[in-house]
Design a protein around this nucleic acid. Structure first.
Length: 110
DNA sequence: GGAGTGACCTTCT
DNA sequence: GAGAAGGCCACTC
């Protein structure tokens, strides 16, 4: 469990868990916070292993607020259901008040 | 050891 | 202003 041993994936899981209730963040925001803004794709790839973990992947969406990773969940509207359950308005797999629920780790955690 | 993949983002036309 | 294309890094086979 040493930071040095922890790969980039573990770091992504850490930030994903830090996302407060009723808030959502983007892959690029996490990647940028980790110092790999150009590796935004890696963040999404890391979520591939989030299944089975306590990582709220449903709180992580793309830059447009679109639930792109929704397909990776067990169900189809599960991700949307979880977001709506937290008070986030989601329509057609897309967050409406994204600017209101957006959570930037680089600024919040700093 | 090399090549391919991926739940993206940035930039140019 | 909108649309389209490319690139980038980390992990897996």
């Amino acid at each position: 469990m040493k930071p040095e041993t922890l790969g980039f994936f573990e770091k992504v899981y850490e930030v994903a868990r830090l996302v407060p209730y009723g808030r959502v963040t983007s892959y690029g925001a996490i990647a940028k916070y980790l110092g790999a803004a150009k590796s935004a794709r890696i963040v999404g790839y890391a979520m591939n292993g989030s299944g089975g973990k306590d990582v709220p992947a449903h709180r992580v969406v793309n830059r447009k607020g679109l639930l792109t990773g929704k397909h990776h969940f067990d169900g189809t509207n599960l991700m949307q259901q979880l977001l709506e359950n937290e008070g986030i308005e989601v329509v057609d797999n897309q967050i409406q008040n994204l600017a209101s629920v957006f959570w930037d780790p680089a600024k919040e955690l700093k």
